[in-house]
């Protein structure tokens, strides 16, 4: 199977040729398959934001290639806009990009730029709103009258409505409370399951990433630090700690238990997994049934 998205020696330098030159991304090569759920982690300034902005052509790499279904996205620079409909990008705090009179019109902005009209457009808007759990009676109100959480949903729906093959979300749950985070995250997971397309999730929350990602990209100091299955990445808790990333509390606890000689699996990600691991140990000793 050929990869859906391939990065070849991708680099980006800010302010090239000036005294303020700064390498943001250096020499990143990787490939992502269709239908994968990828997590992207790394602390602020590690280059992850610049990296994702290169994937839909918002930033042109200074070196290397972004290959989407076998074709370099910069092959025809005049048609770079078309790439943005195929690779949807939800920025951090996306509610600040709302501008239309009604939520419906705002969600329609992306798909109508893409060329959708009439019934087709309405359908795309309503389907996207449903994916983000936005109630349909809100569609005709002003986006500025919505609550914070609803605004966030409307903004995400605006990108989903373009029906991109790849959806990138940069910190979609930032600033939400635990309940809001949980709900939004499960909606993204549902969307991924139903549409079967590729999702890239940038997040500082290792707990969130642990729950949803198949594979994880770890960025550190502008370079690709690791790219592997979630369990394998989280089993490297010590290394991640050294580059300022902390794995979830439960992962650390189980890792230490393992270090003490108990027979628990490597790379435990959730409380559920930890619970069943501890239970099976207790069962072996006949302490519980």
């Amino acid at each position: 199977m050929s990869a859906l998205l391939e990065l070849k020696n991708l680099s980006f330098v800010y302010g090239q040729g000036t005294p303020f030159e700064k390498k943001a991304v250096s020499d990143v090569s990787l490939s992502v398959n269709k239908g994968e759920f990828i997590g992207i982690i790394g602390h602020t300034g590690s280059g992850k934001s610049t990296l994702v902005q290169m994937l839909n052509g918002l930033i042109k790499p200074t070196e290397g290639q972004v290959i989407l279904e076998g074709e370099d996205i910069w092959k025809k620079p005049k048609e770079i806009r078309k790439v943005r409909f195929r690779v949807g990008m939800v920025f951090q705090y996306p509610e600040y990009q709302l501008f239309e009179e009604t939520v419906r019109k705002d969600i329609a902005f992306g798909p109508s730029n893409k060329g959708l009209k009439g019934e087709e457009l309405d359908k795309a808007v309503e389907r996207a709103a449903a994916f983000t759990g936005l109630k349909s009676d809100l569609l005709d109100s002003s986006p500025f009258e919505l609550s914070g959480g609803e605004k966030r949903r409307a903004a995400i729906a605006g990108v989903i409505a373009m029906d991109p093959e790849i959806l990138i979300l940069d910190e979609p749950t930032a600033g939400l409370d635990p309940m809001g985070r949980e709900i939004l995250l499960s909606q993204i997971v549902n969307y991924h399951k139903e549409r079967g397309n590729t999702v890239l999730l940038v997040s500082h929350s290792m707990e969130d990433i642990a729950r949803v990602a198949d594979r994880i990209i770890v960025m550190n100091q502008s370079r690709l630090f690791a790219f592997d299955e979630t369990k394998k990445i989280f089993a490297r808790g010590d290394e991640l700690g050294q580059i300022g990333l902390q794995v979830p509390q439960i992962t650390r606890i189980m890792q230490r238990l393992r270090g003490m000689g108990y027979d628990v699996p490597d790379g435990v990600l959730t409380v559920d997994e930890a619970f069943s691991a501890v239970c099976s140990l207790l069962k072996k000793e006949g302490r519980i049934w």
């Binding site: 806009r81 943005r84 600040y96 990009q97 902005f109 730029n113």
Partner: peptide, 16 residues
């Protein structure tokens, strides 16, 4: 900075 961010976000939605 904010203008820049909003422009990028709208470009990502296909604004020309």
């Amino acid at each position: 900075e904010e203008t820049d961010k909003i422009m990028q976000a709208q470009k990502a939605r296909g604004a020309d």
